[in-house]
Design a binder for these strands. Structure first.
Lengths: 188, 188
DNA sequence: ACATATCCGTTCCGAATTGGAACCAATATC
DNA sequence: GATATTGGTTCCAATTCGGAACGGATATGT
């Protein structure tokens, strides 16, 4: 009971270990607990470009076999990839994006857009993206799911959602100061 | 000369070390070389929620002071944050998002959207986002910079951009097989 | 039949990164 | 003069990582 509050507010310990961030009530922290490790997003980049087999991932990425094996297993465990047998004799497996994995496309595309604009070396983007829908060279923009306008930080107001509401209410009823509830928002 | 090709194709060494991914001609790899380390995106999440001071970051995140100091310095070095003196005596500093830092908003919002949908625990999202433009609770969608339609992986065709074109041309004139040029695309 | 190749990993060890805690310096406040 | 606050740095043990060798199941060449 008290424990879970402390977990959210991180008063239980001076510092939180990285392998515990999935316990935070924060969607970014939870996302990163699955895709936030070294190599993982690069593996997914390759998956979106069509790579499916262990060897190809290893060659394309230059990751060690050990690390690759570990990362792929974790992605399978979290249903971002599925391990599919594509050959009986000898038994051979490949890794394919699931719906959950495909849903990461916006994350990768926004990283591409940022890198193209802010990390280029003056030689233009390494890859160009042609949108078959409109035929133009394009980049990704984050826009509103309802009105379709591009999202700007100052026009988006974060507020306590259902998952945090009750925690906040309990804290308030126990006389916790507003500052700690604010801090809750920061952690969500 | 040959070195730079090997760098791109990663034939020079069996494996590439993580601290060298910024040398890849890949915008995702380059982006991750700045924001891909543990804690960094969580620090930026806090920055977008208004945190500016060393102590507040430390309290909110539960990161060690050492690590925080290192990450902030790196973000300042890459102009994602600026260190601004907000008090003369005693000299006190705070960290603010630059334009380059603000441009990371889509990355964070797409991580939030993915986490809300795929990593929730059945209690609804921790934070709700109200878009002042339309007044609704919304989430971020990646859409086309030209036609505005939501981006779907199968409708986006990646092709060699200027930064890779010349490398590919040189490889071809030297008789490298098409497979290695394909691999170039994968690395870009 | 036997050697070699391919694919998909695992095991092991030294090197690099991280977490945890203590320490430090400049100034404000009691 | 003692204690608190802000913004760090230093140090060491624990964890994670990179590199290279090894393994097992099967195909392929000779």
């Amino acid at each position: 009971m008290l424990d879970s509050q402390f977990q959210v507010l991180q008063l239980a310990r001076d510092c939180m270990r990285w392998d515990q961030i999935d316990q935070q009530r924060c969607s970014i922290a939870r996302s990163l607990s699955v895709v936030g490790e070294r190599w993982t997003l690069l593996i997914l980049r390759d998956a979106f470009l069509g790579t499916r087999r262990f060897d190809k991932f290893q060659q394309n990425l230059g990751i060690t076999r050990h690390r690759l094996s570990e990362r792929l297993s974790k992605l399978v465990k979290h249903s971002v990839l599925v391990k599919v047998q594509y050959n009986n004799r000898p038994p051979r497996y490949e890794y394919r994006l699931t719906r959950k994995g495909l849903a990461l496309y916006p994350v990768l595309m926004s990283l591409v857009a940022w890198g193209d604009e802010w990390m280029n070396d003056g030689m233009g983007p390494p890859l160009e993206l042609v949108h078959l829908n409109c035929g133009e060279k394009i980049h990704a923009v984050a826009s509103c799911s309802t009105c379709g306008e591009p999202l700007r930080p100052e026009e988006v107001r974060p507020q306590l959602g259902p998952a945090l509401m009750e925690v906040a209410a309990r804290l308030e009823s126990e006389g916790e100061c507003i500052e700690e509830i604010q801090s809750l928002i920061r952690h969500s």
